[in-house]
């Protein structure tokens, strides 16, 4: 895949990447506190991994989402024999989602998204002014 060629390309890809990150955080929050009957089945938080996407011809660098990984955090085991999902030993596994961390992640992502929009609108305004030059 070729790199970004215009400033609009940079902004578009940057915003898409932030959106993926926000979706990942939202999925984690939605699955906070979900319970599974075995360690393997328990939900593990997902995280978007960003990488630089440089176009040498234009010198512009955008972002690409290299992948969405599952974090290797151990689910929280708790003893609850009355739970309908409890296994033979009476244990259940809760997803290890840190709500505070996810909220911070979301906040940071939305701020960076906003920042990108702001920069894009300024750049767009300047381009329009240049175009109207007569």
């Amino acid at each position: 895949m070729s790199g970004p060629s215009t400033l609009f390309d940079v902004a578009r890809r940057g915003m898409s990447a932030q959106l993926v990150r926000m979706n990942a955080a939202a999925s984690n929050l939605a699955n906070a506190g979900t319970v599974a009957s075995s360690e393997a089945q328990a939900y593990r938080p997902i995280r978007a991994v960003f990488a630089e996407d440089l176009d040498r011809a234009s010198g512009l660098a955008s972002v690409k989402v290299q992948g969405v990984i599952r974090e290797s955090v151990a689910p929280i085991k708790s003893h609850d024999p009355t739970h309908p999902l409890a296994d033979a030993n009476g244990d259940v596994w809760t997803s290890p989602v840190d709500e505070n961390a996810e909220m911070v992640e979301m906040l940071e992502s939305s701020r960076q998204y906003q920042n990108m929009v702001e920069a894009l609108s300024t750049a767009k305004q300047l381009m329009i002014e240049t175009m109207r030059l007569k």
Binding site: A11, F50, L60, A61, V63
Partner: peptide, 27 residues
């Protein structure tokens, strides 16, 4: 000057886009 300003704008926009990219060095 206008051409350079335009190029610089693209470079700073790249930095803003990469605000969350690990190991990205701002230029």
């Amino acid at each position: 000057a206008l051409e350079l300003r335009s190029q610089r704008m693209g470079m700073i926009a790249s930095n803003i886009a990469n605000a969350a990219t690990p190991n990205y060095k701002a230029r």
